[in-house]
């Protein structure tokens, strides 16, 4: 199995989501190979799940004051604060072995790369259905999948470091009176690679760790590449006309 491999560094939220969708469009059209992409976010961002309400979940004033982007994903799931993390996306046709079986099966297959990467660091990670990877009962990775145009798109994160207080300064909670308890719960349930290793673990080291881990877990050769002209143009168009617009971000 061969996958095209893209490492696109830290980009704004609307571009990141635009490039994921543009790659899906090109893979669906048969013009690009199935693709694994590693990336990060600059500025930091909050991404909303497709079905979440913008004003339910996000303190837009706090995000604006902190220079944090807000974007709606095409995938479901919860709001994510993208700061010190490695993000990946994978796009394959639904006929691809990584998309085989049920949706749960494909989550498990793709998250296998994350589990292997964390295990290679000495972190005893495991897949936690439906869409998390945990170690010692603490979440280190959240993942979200959609299927469109005959392709699977899954993107997810590996928390390299986490500041739960900062996260909750940007996100709203269902019950303000219980915010303190919720923050304490999240601190107990979420960790990061840096915290588990007891040393700083940054983006470059994460790329060097997870690129071979994905390749090994998938039994795939990763062929380094760049976004095609069509993908680059598509990402810029989607950033301007979809992901960067209030009409999309405030869709719910």
């Amino acid at each position: 199995m061969q996958l095209r491999y893209l490492e696109t560094g830290a980009r704004p939220a609307a571009f990141n989501m635009g490039l994921d969708e543009a790659v899906l469009d090109e893979v669906a059209a048969g013009r690009s190979q199935p693709t694994l992409r590693l990336y990060a976010w600059k500025p930091w961002a909050v991404s909303l799940g497709y079905f979440q309400g913008l004003n339910d979940e996000v303190d837009r004033e706090a995000c604006s004051a902190s220079g944090v982007d807000v974007v709606r994903r095409v995938t479901g799931g919860g709001a994510v604060f993208h700061a010190a993390e490695l993000t990946y996306s994978i796009v394959v046709p639904e006929s691809h072995p990584l998309a085989a079986g049920s949706i749960l099966d494909s989550y498990r297959s793709i998250c296998g790369g994350l589990v292997l990467g964390l295990s290679s660091l000495g972190i005893p990670a495991e897949f936690a259905p439906l869409n998390d990877v945990v170690a010692g009962g603490k979440k280190l990775s959240g993942n979200a999948q959609t299927r469109k145009k005959g392709c699977l798109l899954q993107h997810g994160t590996v928390l390299l470091d986490v500041d739960v207080d900062q996260m909750f300064a940007l996100l709203k909670v269902p019950n303000e009176k219980l915010k303190g308890k919720l923050i304490a719960d999240v601190k107990a349930r979420v960790s990061s690679v840096s915290a588990m290793l007891g040393r700083p673990f940054g983006y470059d080291e994460a790329v060097a760790t997870f690129r071979p881990a994905f390749a090994s877990a998938f039994g795939a050769e990763l062929a380094p590449g760049q976004p095609t002209e069509a993908e680059q143009a598509g990402a810029e168009r989607l950033a301007a006309e979809k992901f960067g617009t209030l009409a999309w971000t405030a869709k719910r």
Binding site: Q52, D56, Q145
Partner: peptide, 10 residues
């Protein structure tokens, strides 16, 4: 209807 659930296709 909003929340952090998943639905395919959206």
């Amino acid at each position: 209807i909003r929340g952090d659930f998943f639905a395919h296709p959206e």
